[in-house]
Structures are given as C-alpha cells and as structure tokens.
Design a protein around this nucleic acid. Structure first.
Lengths: 338, 338
DNA sequence: CTGAAAGCGCTTACAG
DNA sequence: CTGAAAGCGCTTACAG
C-alpha cells in the first residue's frame, strides 16, 4: 500500500515526475521512466482510484440497476445472462461495474444520489419493477449518460429486442403449420408485452383469422403455476386451441405439465411455443418452439453504447437500438391439416 | 453536484461544522444542524464517496470475483442466485458491490491490485475457474478480509454447502427405495465433486452394496450433451443401472432425453436424480429427485460473514461454515422390489 | 526534462 | 459549540 510519495522518495525524484512517468507523459526522459517503473514494481506500488477520481472526475465505474422484483433480476436467466455479457464487455473496455442500490453505510439515498455519491461515469438501467418509478425517471432525466434495456426513454439510449418481429415470425410460423385456433397466454403489462400482443393481433388479422378473445389471457412471466391454471382453463373449453403460446420458455413448462397430467401428447395433440430461447428448453424433447433473444448481444451492446456515450458524447446518438431475434422452430409445434 | 464548501457558504458556517452536522456529531447545536440539513436538501447536496474514502480509509464497497469459465458464473443459475442473495444482504448492511476484474482504463492488473486500486473493504471469491490460480491465492493470502464460496482456504472464511451430507442423504434414499445398481455421472474434479464421491462410496459400502466402477463416470456440470453420451453408454450395458444420478439438475435433462428417445419410462423403467434443487426441475413431471442447496442462505451468509469480519475482525472467526442441504424426494426415483 | 504548488472534496484532531 | 488547519493520495497547469 505504498503511496506515490514513498515511491518518489525511493526514486529520488519528485512526486510530479513519478506521476507523469507512470501515466506515460512524453516530457519524461526514458531513464527516469524506467527507474520509476522499476521501483514501482519493486515496492508493489499501485495508485489509489479514489484519489485519482477526486482529481480527474472520472471513475471508470458504471452503475447498473438491477432491482429484484418477484424473482426477476439476477434470479431470472434472461437478466443474468445480460449482466454477464455487460460485465464482460465493460471489463474489456476498462470499466468496472457496481450495483446501484438504496443505502450505503447508514444513509438512505435515491438511485441518483447513489450515482452522484459514487461518481459513476454512466448508468445502465437493466431491470426495474416499474419503468415509471419516479426515482428511475429522475435518473434518466439527470445529466448522466444512461442506457436502458427493454424500455425506451427520451434522453437515453435504449437497447431493445425486436419483440414486434419476434412475435410476428412466431405467429406466422404457427399459422403456416396450419393452426387457426391459437391461444396466447401473455405476460404482465409492459411495453415488451404490449408489442408482442400487437404483433399477435396484426399477424392474425393479416391472415384473416378471427381472434377469439377467450384465447388471449393475461398470465405472468416465468410463472409455471399461473400458466398451468390458464392452460387448464383453455383445455377445458369445448372448442379448445390447437396451439398455446406461453409468456416465455420457463412458463411454457406449465403447459407441458398440464398436458402430461391430462394425457395430451405434445406436439401430436397440442402444440406449444415459448419465448426467450434460453438454456434448458432447448434441451427438452421435443425441443420447444420459441423466439431466441440475443442476450449476449443485448448486454454487450448496452455496455458498448454506454461507454461510447461517456467517451464520445458528441458522436454517439441517443437512439433506440433494436436487436434481431431468431425463430427457433424446434419440434413442439406440429404441422396440422387446415 | 454542490460541494460541501458551497453548502457551508450558503449556511454561513464553516466547512467543519457542516461536515460534523451532517455526520451526526454531538457537539453541534440543534439549530445549526437543522439549518445545515435544510440547506443541504435544498441544494441537493450529496457527499462524494471518493473524497470520503480518501480520508476515512473505508469505501463501503466489496469486491466480488465472478470469473466466467465455460458457461459458469452468472450464466449458471446456482451462482447467479448466490450473487442475488449476496447483493441483497450487502445492500441491507450498507455496502456496495463491484466485480473484480483485470483491467481498468488502460491498465492491466491482478485481482489483488484491482482490490487495492478500488480500496475494497473486503472481498468475496464466489466463482473462479481454478481455486489454486496464483492470483486467487495471492488475494486469499493478502491482508484483505476474504470470504470464499464452495472452497476452503486458510486465512479466509469459507461458506460451504454440505455436500457430504447431501450426497449421503440422496444415496441412502435411493437405496431405501430398493435400488442396488446405482450409477453416478459426476462433475469435473473439484473439492465439491470429491466430497460427493466420497459420500457416494461411503454410503454404498455402509449398505454392503458392491460398487460397479463402470457405473461411476466423469461427466461435466451443466452439460446435457455429455450426460446424454454417458447415459447412452450406461443404458447400453447388458446389466444396466436402475438409477442414474446426474452431476446436477440441469445435466439430468440429458438422462431424461436419452430415456425418451429410447422409449424408457421414467421413473417406471429408470430412476433419475439430480443435485442443486433449482428452478425448472421442480416444475417437471415427475418432479426431479434432488438435493436442494440453499442458494439464498449461501449468498446471504457470505455477505454477513464478510461484513462481520470487516467490522469486527476480533470477534469473527475464520472458519468454514457448512450450510444444511435438503433432500427433495420428488418423483423420479421409484420404489422397486429388492 | 524536472519539480513546487495548488487543488480535487472531504474529515478530524485541536484550539478557542 | 464553532472554525482554522492539516492532510488523505493523487494530477496538472506552470515555472524554470
């Protein structure tokens, strides 16, 4: 834990010279630089980020907001994978990441106050319970560089997964397989959900298929039990759907379970689709039909855009960046006769 | 972004007085304190963590090491859940957490150098590729307060899940169900794997069951394809096992898949068990027999112990803390006639 | 090419 | 009860 002062004493040059030698300034002789570096290594000298930040107004630290809400956040693979990719990209670009929260030491603080306290260079809003939470809005409207995921704000860069196109592709595929009676158990209201619903309705209409409102039910993301309950309802109808779309892959397990209990074979007697395209459902048999969101790209792009915005604010535009999704046909939607 | 100096000007008192008023010192009149606090709120004053840390030698920031290695780390639910719990507990106790990495700005650094640079108050080693990595050892052997998960070192607090007992309970349960031909596809070598193997062997011997070495195969944690390959091998034997234990729940999917392809019914014709007890396998039908590790407790306990060690080093012992696990009987191991 | 000095925003003995 | 002063570990104009 040697300080720059101790190092300068050992080198026999001034503190200023040590600092400049270590930071690659050009107006330092090569002998002096070599001397300083050698001594620095010998004493295991390492600078202090706090002291540097104080002078330089730059921390190389990004705040990320991941608020857990009913098993979301890090306990949800989708968000965990995004964080992993964000972290890796940030590290490559030389930035640390710290979670934004409400208290440090004994003080309570708002998200914005936390950011000011830590002097983050920029902020990523990755997962919040409510995008219109006043504290979140305060952060977005501050003068911090901000990137958000899955929601677009004015004055921030947004990384969005193309839900309109994803749902469009999925529904069109299901229709192309001959299905007409398609049920959609969707997630709780949010802009992501809204866009998926819009595509569902649009594609159905484009294909001249009448929409049965009883087939559109509000479930919950990642809730197997809710999906089970709603699936029972759907399968109990006299004129039941031939295909059910779940809020996401995980919730789709609810459909599979109910079908298994009722002795309904998938995909022979019932087709099923999910959304997300993560981990285990690609290992099920039959492989689940789904839409793969590019979590690695979402996280990496968020970090990249945020750092660009920090380092080159004048050439980084505040736009919505929409990432391509991919239809995974899998085997859980069966071709049937029309 | 007002500074304490601006605030002191506005209040008409000295910077020292402002600082003391804000930090709850007792030798400040209540009028002055009220005045300072009122003005602070008005101008939206908030202190600067870097400046404070410089003086106080305390950052209220914990370093956490999560190095991704072949889809481990945050992409593995087990570790992601631990992080979620760690994060929540740390926030409650007033600490931030920052990931430890290798570069900041343009400099490369070792884990220890990173910690020194950021002045973390303590460190959690949660997920590394190799526990004997010299850089990890350097960190453990430094004078930082350190807590590690799933591996015990001298000079650090270790949070361990009781793998000996978990595997003991699982194997005994399987034997009690009448199984004798039990195969174990275990994970890659590590102390966790070692302990599970020890228990497997011990319990088999205690029950006077001869161990068939062909039934003990090295697979990979969380690898469905490896497990599939090894399951095919096991099920291709003339004298095949009646029960297969997978490295973990996720890998257990490989057993289920192969069984499905071969038309082998689970649990009627083959019993299966996993390990971990997380998320989706509890939603499968039949519910997977497994050992539930208490991820929430592991993460929370790690944070609690680390913070205790930081705040009360003299009364916090450097010990291994072993957390209880729970056998989940599920329905994938069938009772058979002996 | 090198160094003395000021200053980043705080906290904390110490004096009054 | 209040405030002047020193100092935490750095960086960076500026002077020489």
């Amino acid at each position: 834990m040697a300080t720059i002062k101790e190092l300068s004493l050992k080198c026999g040059v001034s503190v200023s010279t040590v600092s400049k030698a270590l930071n690659g300034y050009q107006d330092i002789s090569e002998e002096t630089r070599a001397l300083v570096i050698r001594n620095a290594n010998e004493m295991g000298y390492f600078p202090d980020a706090n002291a540097r930040a104080l002078k330089m107004k730059k921390t190389c630290n990004l705040g990320v907001l991941y608020m857990d809400t009913s098993n979301q956040s890090l306990r949800n693979e989708y968000f965990a994978h995004i964080l992993a990719a964000f972290k890796e990209k940030a590290a490559k670009r030389g930035y640390d990441i710290t979670f934004i929260d409400h208290n440090i030491g004994n003080r309570k603080m708002s998200y914005l106050e936390h950011c000011r306290y830590r002097n983050f260079d920029g902020v990523c809003i990755a997962c919040v319970a409510e995008f219109n939470d006043p504290e979140v809005l305060e952060l977005v409207n501050s003068d911090y560089p901000v990137v958000t995921i899955d929601h677009s704000y004015n004055g921030a860069i947004s990384i969005l997964s193309d839900n309109l196109d994803g749902m469009r592709q999925l529904v069109q595929y299901i229709i192309d397989q001959g299905h007409r009676k398609i049920a959609y158990i969707h997630g709780t209201k949010a802009s992501v959900t809204h866009n998926r619903l819009v595509s569902f309705n649009t594609v159905m209409r484009e294909n001249n298929i009448e929409i049965n409102n009883d087939f559109i039910l509000e479930g919950k993301y990642r809730s197997v039990t809710t999906t089970e309950r709603l699936t029972e309802k759907l399968l109990g109808m006299s004129d039941r759907p031939t295909c059910i779309i779940a809020p996401d892959d995980y919730a789709a397990l609810g459909i599979l379970n109910v079908a298994a209990r009722m002795g309904i074979k998938i995909p022979d007697e019932l087709s099923v689709a999910g959304y997300d395209g993560i981990t285990f459902t690609k290992s099920l048999e039959p492989k689940l039909t789904t839409v793969k969101q590019d979590v690695d790209k979402i996280g990496a792009e968020a970090a990249k855009q945020l750092i660009n915005l920090i380092e080159s604010p004048m050439t980084t535009s505040l736009e919505n960046i929409c990432l391509k999704v991919q239809l995974i046909k899998g085997g859980s939607v069966k071709k049937i006769d029309v």
